[in-house]
Write a protein that binds this DNA or RNA. Structure first.
Lengths: 234, 234
DNA sequence: CCGGCTCTGTAACTCTGGTCACAGACCCGG
DNA sequence: CCGGGTCTGTGACCAGAGTTACAGAGCCGG
């Protein structure tokens, strides 16, 4: 009910669209026209599965609000997050699949309530005629590929303590989350994360509390993240 | 001597270009014209490093002959191959970096003597105006992304025996390569590969010889690759 | 045929990370 | 204040993979 009909979202989202995607606001008038006519809007609750392995969604999704967590899941049930799609990004995986006629290889789940705009493939392809839009899309591709390569580096070469330390950095002095959530981010399990965090705490790098991790020594964590040997408190 | 001046390759390569890249043969006359005028040709010997982390090559490479092996290397010196770029493909990593203004995150080394055509960024971007070419490029992006996601799945979730078994399949009945080479493909080390191959041999899946592996039971290898428990010979 | 090279086999050990099984701590509703 | 839920801490154990250190086998040139 957020939209009486597809091209007439309930006020707010359209403003947010332009705000999040300046490139769409800068389209040619005719392109913009086509976009607005063809777009389908969706507002979905948290935890909705938007696509899954071997099952594509039928349009190019522009995330207007909220975010999508894209994960690869293992045969044994564990999962590894590949990346997130936040407001202002399109799900390049969808793009890739639709443009390349490949199959999906991952699952996408909304993290919070999420508003997205779906564009039919034909319209999307037409918009690619406009160079700024095309550059925008390529830019996203580039970021995603760089991100995936980064991820490969991490899972293939970094130890879990390094990855965990990295995970803790850059999110403020104290983070409110459970060990389970951290484990999920790393594609690992709770016990190991608890163990490693305990180690960090013993080194004075963090202080632990229920559902919270307080960063005491960011520099030390950075050292750990980059694989330097732990230095004793002496 | 292979080229008196950049746009005049020594006969053969141009034919191979059209053969390997039908999409380039199908460009508009003006696009084709621009392409041929701006292209720089290179013929490089095996083992040449074309680009490295944080160091891009200065054009869009079209591989006309030979292939490029793109690897991510670990701090400790080990390497994991990310993908290969063969004849008829452009190095999408370069594309990604150049279009997205990101840094390189991997190293590219020619596997055999390799002929490639380098296209200046401006020309490449102009060619993207032509839809078939654009689709070609997006298709490559899609394949590459799918490949990277596949790789993530493998390094994150598969055991080495599974990956090794997969590696052996689809290359004919007997492969001529050393355990070291197999290890390099998997980003592992020789001893482990020897150990695992020995295991395969004990199960009757392969027969081993110096610099060669003979596949005796492809179906069994496929089972191993997909993670099914080894079945005893009884 | 000797000596050196590359390739392979293998044993012993270590390190990481995952699994299992609990115990205890905190939290909140009734 | 009781009781169940969620979260955390921990120890014992295991499996996979990497490391070290050799021994031996096949190959080849001189």
């Amino acid at each position: 009910m957020s939209a009486a009909h597809p091209s007439a979202p309930a006020g707010m989202p359209l403003a947010r669209l332009d705000e999040g995607y300046p490139v769409l606001a800068a389209l040619s008038p005719s392109g913009r026209q086509r976009l607005l006519e063809a777009a389908r809007w969706m507002r979905v609750p948290a935890g909705t599965c938007l696509f899954d392995e071997h099952q594509a969604c039928e349009g190019f999704p522009f995330v207007v609000d909220g975010s999508i967590r894209v994960v690869k899941s293992a045969p044994n049930g564990r999962e590894l997050p590949l990346y997130r799609v936040g407001a202002g990004e399109t799900c390049i995986l969808s793009t890739s699949c639709l443009l390349g006629h490949e199959d999906y290889r991952a699952r996408g789940v909304t993290e919070g309530e999420t508003v997205l705009m779906l564009l039919p493939q034909a319209v999307f392809e037409d918009l690619l005629d406009e160079r700024p839009f095309r550059e925008f899309v390529f830019h996203l591709f580039a970021e995603r590929i760089a991100g995936l390569m980064q991820l490969i580096e991490e899972v293939a070469f970094r130890r879990l303590d390094q990855r965990l330390a990295a995970q803790l950095l850059g999110k403020g002095r104290t983070l409110r989350l459970t060990h389970q959530q951290l484990a999920d981010e790393l594609g690992s399990v709770r016990e190991i994360v608890s163990r490693l965090l305990k180690g960090f705490a013993d080194q004075g790098l963090v202080r632990l509390g229920r559902e919270q991790v307080e960063i005491l020594d960011p520099a030390g964590l950075r050292r750990t993240a980059s694989g330097e040997p732990a230095r004793s408190a002496g």
